[in-house]
Design a protein around this nucleic acid. Structure first.
Lengths: 336, 336
DNA sequence: CTGAAAGCGCTAACAT
DNA sequence: ATGTTAGCGCTTTCAG
């Protein structure tokens, strides 16, 4: 493996000059630079990024802390799409991505912050972390530049990007109301997800603006899981037969609700309207296809990467970015 | 950021002792070790992995060269599942994953081998690379330990893992034959994919074993894309109305074929049987659900990671691992 | 415009 | 069982 030392020797100059030439400094004779570059090509030189990182105290890598790397998350490939967006932006830069994972096993008892420090990542993107996760606190306090996805924390070195969940949920419920529904239930995720809190708020507001009263017994938690949602929806439809529409905080849960409808003798959309959230791939393929609030997951990742790298490169302040959502009307909803 | 130097000072020993204590060497007094460990915790020490990598000449990272990180690949989340499997294995080790990407832009004109050398990855896993990709050659020749997914190259430092594509394709076609089909077309991917060559071979063998003749005009290429497959299948059904069954080399293409069937006035499975390959998530959700050859993509990744890390740690020789496939009978196929 | 020298944090002979 | 020393490959003052 050739080093700048080898090049220096071959070119008859010092390592300093080689370093400067290769890094595009101006104070080096063009002739020497040309020569050095030529030699470095001949010798098939690649800089040792570890050595550079050691002395410069930065690694040109950004760490990815995603919790959704398991079988569960393959269904809604939220994580993957976010990743794809991050990658898309990062590809245009000279940053590489390192994947940390949360599967806490015996051998891997290190905390996130430790992981980040060890690897000397320049910054971190967090995704899929619950609001009460101790790691979250840790990372936020660690003063590593950091961008959170769907968690609204902003500090001196932490920014975030999310979608407008209140508006999204509101437009979903408003649409159901426009269709004539009056008894609208909600299948939420869980209380520890920021997006759940927001979507609940949107649900409430839409009801209130339409002069409908909020009944907390019509809001149930489906844990963001298809099966759990099926279970709780089934019970709900039994207990409150007046319900004619369900707003689900995720498409996966909407799929579960639709199954539950079948078990309860309801037909979607004729005797029950179901609207989801996310617009995962499955939504347009299932039958009936799912009316849903679409959020652009790739954009989420893209903007997160962009923001982080701008914090790193331009020392810009952490920001909060709120992306818009879009109502996609398909077949799972109908007028009453 | 605390270093072993700080710890050494605090403990009144030399850095060597600290290094040895922390790395679990036996030749250090238990008392001193305890003290050192305690102090290192107090000081919230994390080793600088770059420094360690520099001197040890290894980085404890493995590089991921995947080509499927774009919008296309979100549909069949093959890439994601493989990644998930890799991650699953890696999580149990102290290796981290770094994601390289292929989006060749101006700024990123480095070759894979360069990327790997720069980052000093200890090994690489390649996925989604075409057989004629110059990078493939480069990496194989670079003598970096490497595991290929679905490309059967085995050298001194290159192993691979794949599924038994011949057997898989054969069982798909054999199943169609058992259903009574005689005129069976095949929508293949493209010639530059190893799996396509294998699956074609399986198709031929199944025909031959059943005494059916191979007609090369019934084999068309769908480029592994849904839209392309729809297009070519449409034409095929038009030109050869005697065809009653189609074997597709991927589920995504099977989805396209089913659409084409609709356009051609064929009903699946009543007047056209379609069988896919992969068993992507969509397959069980679409209607009619897709009969297909399932391959375990997570296993693919898992075994790749396992093999690579064993090459790295135990210096075991590169191997080739062939995983089994499974016929999943659903609704898109029927007897004639 | 170029070079000498120091040092980033760590490990590894080689003493002792 | 512990310390001394050298060095991994690179960047960066500081002097010419």
């Amino acid at each position: 493996m050739t080093t700048i030392k080898d090049i220096a020797k071959a070119a008859g100059v010092s390592v300093t000059t080689v370093s400067r030439a290769l890094n595009g400094y101006s104070d080096v004779n063009e002739k020497t630079r040309k020569k050095i570059i030529e030699i470095s090509k001949e010798l098939n030189y690649s800089p040792n990024i570890l050595a550079r990182g050691l002395v410069m105290n930065k690694s040109k890598t950004i760490g990815l802390l995603v919790s959704g790397f398991n079988k569960e998350s393959i269904k809604d490939n939220f994580t993957f799409e976010v990743l794809s967006g991050i990658n898309q932006y990062a590809a245009e830069t000279d940053y590489d991505l390192v994947l940390f994972n949360t599967t806490s096993t015996k051998q891997r008892e290190k905390t996130y912050a430790q992981l980040c420090r060890e690897r000397r990542v320049d910054g971190v993107i967090l995704q899929g972390i619950k609001t009460d996760d101790p790691y979250l606190q840790e990372v936020v306090e660690s003063n590593i530049p950091c961008v959170l996805i769907d968690i609204p924390i902003q500090t001196e070195n932490v920014g975030f990007v999310t979608t407008d969940n209140i508006a999204g949920a509101k437009s979903a419920v408003r649409y159901l109301i426009e269709l004539g529904h009056k008894n609208i239930a909600m299948v939420n995720g869980h209380d520890l997800a920021f997006v759940s809190q927001e979507r609940l708020e949107g649900y409430k507001r839409a009801l209130s603006e339409a002069g409908l009263s909020f009944r907390k017994e019509l809001v149930i938690n489906g844990a963001f899981e298809e099966g759990k949602s099926e279970e709780v929806t089934h019970k709900l439809l039994n207990d409150y037969p007046e319900v004619t529409a369900v707003f689900c905080a995720s498409d996966l849960m909407a799929l579960g609700s639709i199954k539950a409808a079948g078990k309860s003798g309801r037909k979607v959309p004729e005797s029950l309207s179901v609207i989801g959230y996310d617009d995962i791939l499955l939504s347009s393929y299932v039958s009936p296809s799912l009316t849903t609030i679409a959020q652009n997951k790739q954009q989420l990742g893209f903007h997160a990467a962009q923001q982080l790298i701008e914090m790193l490169e331009k020392e810009s302040a952490p920001a909060h970015i709120i992306l818009e959502t879009e109502l996609k009307i398909r077949q799972s909803t109908a007028g009453i």
